[in-house]
Write a protein that binds this DNA or RNA. Sequence first.
DNA 1: TTGAAAGCGCTACCAG
DNA 2: CTGGTAGCGCTTTCAA
Lengths: 337, 337
Amino acid sequence: MKATIYDIAKEAGVSITTVSQVINGKGKISEERRKEIFRIMERLHYQPSVIAAALTGKKTYTLGLIVPDISNPFFAEMARAVEDQGHRSGYSLMICSTDNKDDRVQSYLTLMRKKRVDGIIIGTGMDDERMLNPLVEAGIPIVLIAREMPSQAVHTVIVDDGVGGGLVARHLLEQGHRRMAILAEHPKVSSSRNRIIGFKQAVDEAGMILENNGIRYCDYTVEDGKRKALELLGEAVRPTALFCCNDLLAIGALQAAKELDIRVPDQLSVVGFDNTILASVTDPPLTTVAQPIERMGKIAVDLLMQELTDPSVIKQRIVLRPDLVVRHSASSSRPDF
Amino acid sequence: MKATIYDIAKEAGVSITTVSQVINGKGKISEERRKEIFRIMERLHYQPSVIAAALTGKKTYTLGLIVPDISNPFFAEMARAVEDQGHRSGYSLMICSTDNKDDRVQSYLTLMRKKRVDGIIIGTGMDDERMLNPLVEAGIPIVLIAREMPSQAVHTVIVDDGVGGGLVARHLLEQGHRRMAILAEHPKVSSSRNRIIGFKQAVDEAGMILENNGIRYCDYTVEDGKRKALELLGEAVRPTALFCCNDLLAIGALQAAKELDIRVPDQLSVVGFDNTILASVTDPPLTTVAQPIERMGKIAVDLLMQELTDPSVIKQRIVLRPDLVVRHSASSSRPDF
DNA sequence: TTGAAAGCGCTACCAG
DNA sequence: CTGGTAGCGCTTTCAA
């Protein structure tokens, strides 16, 4: 059977209290005893049970990360950043992919509560934001990453999506594009919404007009991006530029263009968002907006740690600045095509 | 404060035993009481503590997944498959990225023990395989995925790497390639080793010779793949084909070729391995070997579940067949270049 | 059908 | 410095 704290205590001829203190580096134990006890723990392959410790009112040292899909490079990179930063403070990471389905979100949220995670980082959207209420009321530290939910009093770490959208619009406008369409995520996704708002606003400011039917809402997949891009590019007067609200959609757009024998960037400019590893390997390499995802993950964890230390900290909303990464998928408009 | 089983019991005017039974669907409780108790749990926002349940000798319903890097698409896809299959049986997933560093592997392995996970899926290599001994001795179910460790009596799910290497060799050979070099992972990685062995064997069988200096060992990154490819392609008589032991390295090779103005596939053929999402978006799209990663993740979890149910099950070694996915990065050798 | 009581392994508080 | 003891929230006999 597994060794317990009792076994160690008995073997060392001390009380479990002493052993406990040695494990946690608390109290004052003679150096001699301490060494001896460590030796015995080693010999018996003893591993203190985090479970039992957690039950005693302490922490589980586990953080939950809820995202739409961990196999999506953007969220995978986010997970890595969160994992690393958490690990530095001794926390491990439980990941949950929701596919943006509310029932999965709900089921995972419930699970996190049952498992008593110390904090939750949420990078997924949900139709009904009230799902979070029970957790907030229960005082579980929560931070939203790359998402916003104004209705909830929780920490938030985001990139300024509006600025990002504006960056793209101005870049495209500068190159002479006038007919620009958008491949958006589902309207319920705030980040996507804000990117579009920023984009439109910059277009407005330039005195241009973006036609409404130039927006297509897509699932978070390459396939759907391709499908919707095909629709957009199949129209009589097709756009000369496509702003895609994430890299996956942009890749779909690239594939659609290839299928229609439309050359990128000569005949069509495509801009993505996120700057995942994918953007650097496409043909042509994707011009896209970079989110400082590593930073964001780090900050999200720090916020959690802060709240864990002092539950009364005021909720913060941290907005990072996105950057336009110019590669080769966008160039000047060529009206002659 | 959080509601406990006592609160529910008191509120319902029954004993905690009854509540416990209702929660777990055990014992015989009158339908009436059952309903009433469920109603109260709902009203008090009660969530049974998995922690407490686990302490009582039951399971934690948590699985550990240890990989080199969750932000690497191959492992991210693996994680997703494992997460989904685990979720079906009520398990959640704890992920750990080791960067292939033994001290990180060790630290995570220890952590999993302390957290009493019910099983561990290992997709990372380690220099010292004996690190697993304590876990095996402790009877913790372990399954190796996309890795092998003959020295350990654990379940293993892999793709037949030798066959995969052979597939690549024959494909390249058929197209007339004779000077072929290899971008390999670290020699300690069994999968990479076997791919090379299979590749060489097929070359042998064709009566050809592969020069030894044609192998470069790389870190698991695009950058290093590029660096080593640059070396290989900078030689006096450069290879006409590059077999890369994973897609990341293949992308590095693609980038190196572009930098040297070597056209792929006209002047150089590049073949990858893994068939991650990356392979479908490169320029040109990558010919690569597909591992049925979803299947593998599912099987790995099933094996764990099996062992959890019956610890005496005999350890299995499941070998899946890889497939060559022909895209556009490899074509016939053109000796005139 | 239902309840009382004995832990699970560990921490924290209070004595000594 | 070190030990005793009371739980933490839940499951599991064993009785009733």
